[in-house]
Amino acid sequence: MLEQPIYLLMGAGLLILLIALFLTLRQKGASGQEQSRSHEQKLQERQEMEKSLQRFVHQVKQENELVVANLRKTKENLRSDLDQLEERIQTLESELGAVREQLASSMGETQKEPLSMGNEEVPRVHEDTLFLRERFQRAFALQREGLSLDEIAKQLGAGRGELELIFSLATPQERGRAHE
């Protein structure tokens, strides 16, 4: 892939060389002075052109090597960054798993031991969550049916501001779960 610029540049150099030779030959035919040039001058001009072409090809090769080296270095840097990010993701996933376990164990304890205040029992956190989930699902279902916020608020017995907040904070996944 990186060799293509070299070939293009070498081809352009050869084309320039051919054009120069063509113009030289043309000038020879057009002018009598050019015909009288000695064979040594022609040989010297060719040698100069060959040297120029060799310098050009050498310069192109050096530039190509520099580009390849820079690309390799960039690739190594990106690989290093990617490895660090993958390591960070693994760390975060393990931390998330630990938090989920901790949350699940605390939810289990909360559901087993309902709090009581006087003669009334405080409902379990799980039941509250289910009630809210059903309420949100119903709100999204009514919205899909085409009801306005005021009509939804009236049917659910909720305030318009509360519904606006629910709809604005809901992620697309939560809206999709309203179908379930």
Score class of each variant (00 low, 15 high):
115 L>K: 15
9 L>A: 14
101 E>Y: 13
143 Q>D: 01
111 Q>P: 10
27 Q>T: 00
104 A>Q: 15
78 L>K: 12
135 R>M: 04
135 R>S: 04
66 L>Y: 04
96 L>Y: 01
61 K>S: 07
167 F>T: 02
90 Q>R: 13
130 L>H: 07
35 Q>Y: 02
72 R>T: 08
172 P>I: 04
109 E>P: 07
120 E>Q: 11
11 G>N: 09
148 S>H: 14
159 G>K: 15
120 E>N: 06
142 L>W: 15
15 L>M: 06
9 L>T: 06
62 Q>N: 09
137 Q>C: 03
31 S>V: 00
107 M>G: 15
99 V>I: 14
72 R>S: 07
176 G>D: 05
50 E>Y: 12
24 T>S: 01
178 A>F: 11
148 S>D: 12
104 A>W: 03
36 S>Y: 02
18 L>M: 02
9 L>F: 01
161 G>L: 03
36 S>P: 00
75 K>D: 05
36 S>H: 02
8 L>W: 02
141 A>I: 06
147 L>V: 02
22 F>C: 00
144 R>I: 00
84 Q>M: 11
43 L>V: 05
66 L>W: 02
102 Q>G: 15
12 A>I: 03
160 R>G: 03
11 G>S: 12
84 Q>E: 09
177 R>F: 11
113 E>W: 02
60 V>K: 08
64 N>V: 06
127 E>M: 10
55 R>T: 05
137 Q>Y: 04
101 E>V: 09
91 T>S: 14
160 R>V: 07
48 E>N: 11
117 M>Y: 08
123 P>K: 03
65 E>C: 04
19 I>F: 07
37 R>W: 00
124 R>P: 00
30 A>W: 02
119 N>A: 10
6 I>E: 00
44 Q>G: 11
35 Q>D: 02
66 L>V: 02
90 Q>W: 07
37 R>F: 00
127 E>R: 10
72 R>E: 08
9 L>W: 01
122 V>C: 09
86 E>L: 07
174 E>N: 12
132 L>Y: 13
56 F>R: 02
157 G>V: 05
38 S>K: 13
12 A>L: 05
54 Q>W: 05
25 L>P: 00
46 R>T: 08
38 S>A: 13
55 R>Y: 10
99 V>N: 14
102 Q>D: 11
55 R>L: 08
102 Q>K: 14
41 Q>A: 04
78 L>Y: 06
